[in-house]
Write a protein that binds this DNA or RNA. Structure first.
Ligand SMILES: [Mn+2]
Ligand SMILES: [Mn+2]
Ligand SMILES: [Zn+2]
Ligand SMILES: [Zn+2]
Lengths: 132, 132
DNA sequence: TGACAAACAAGAGTTGCTCCTATCTAATAG
DNA sequence: CTATTAGATAGGAGCAACTCTTGTTTGTCA
């Protein structure tokens, strides 16, 4: 919660509860998934607070809002450089790691024109569970 | 429209109008953006028809539904292998091309477990227009 | 121990699809 | 060339996932 104070944000019980759930998660939850999880320990919390807090956290770099193919925004508690496999059937987003991908060079013409903040390789396909 | 017949889909004036707009577009329209464009030539068309047709086209491989960070689904009339730069400010998605990226190998552990249908490098950052 | 800016809960409002139904039409058979 | 009909469309209701508003509460600092 140092990160909160550092950004002039108050340290509230709601923020602490959401943060704790976030760091123990290993998947890519939607705002509603986080809400359902957090409300088990904090029955009076509102969806709006969870959603707003996740967006606040993404602004101060605690979570990432990641690319998706569905209508729900997906958050990623793992903010290190890694890559994603999207299953087109079950919509799950699966992490994978590759030094080769991490070290990809940004093309010159892009570097000249734009400011690149992050890069990621996104694979689409069918996961092992959906193949049967 | 051969593609339609080949997939047992009727060739309707609406589908022709949407298809024509699609192939002349060079950006990544949302369903609503397509609706607004197509209705100029076809004032009586409904949003639902445009949206449904875009999804139908994506099923038969005429367009791609691409990864996004917002709430609107984005379509891509360019179905060849290429890569995307997402501007986090104006939300524009800009194409770029790189032989190096096209030739990326899929990691062994992914290839073993999953069926990969497409790959793309996604860069996030700030575009030239938003930098001023 | 106040004062107060910031954050919260609850619920209304908005956006962007998605579904439903009556009507229409492209394709095929006669 | 017409009749038939499965499939497609328009218009509108319905729904999911946020997003905003308002009145109340609370963490922080003096
Ligand atoms: Mn991840
Ligand atoms: Mn593209
Ligand atoms: Zn799957
Ligand atoms: Zn921009």
């Amino acid at each position: 919660m140092k990160r909160c104070k550092h950004n002039n944000l108050k340290v509230t019980p709601q923020r602490i509860a959401i943060y704790k759930k976030l760091i123990e998660l290993k998947n890519h939850p939607s705002a509603d998934a986080m809400f359902q999880t957090v409300r088990r320990d904090f029955p009076n919390i509102s969806f709006d607070t969870v959603n707003r807090t996740l967006l606040t956290f993404s602004e101060i770099g605690i979570v990432d809002v990641i690319e998706g193919h569905g209508r729900q925004r997906r958050f990623d508690p793992d903010i290190s450089c890694h890559h994603h496999f999207h299953c087109v059937k079950c919509k799950e987003i699966i992490d994978f790691y590759s030094a080769e991908y991490d070290n990809l060079e940004i093309p010159e013409n892009i570097k000249k024109k734009f400011t690149v903040l992050s890069k990621r390789v996104v694979l689409n396909g069918i996961c092992d569970k959906c193949t049967e």
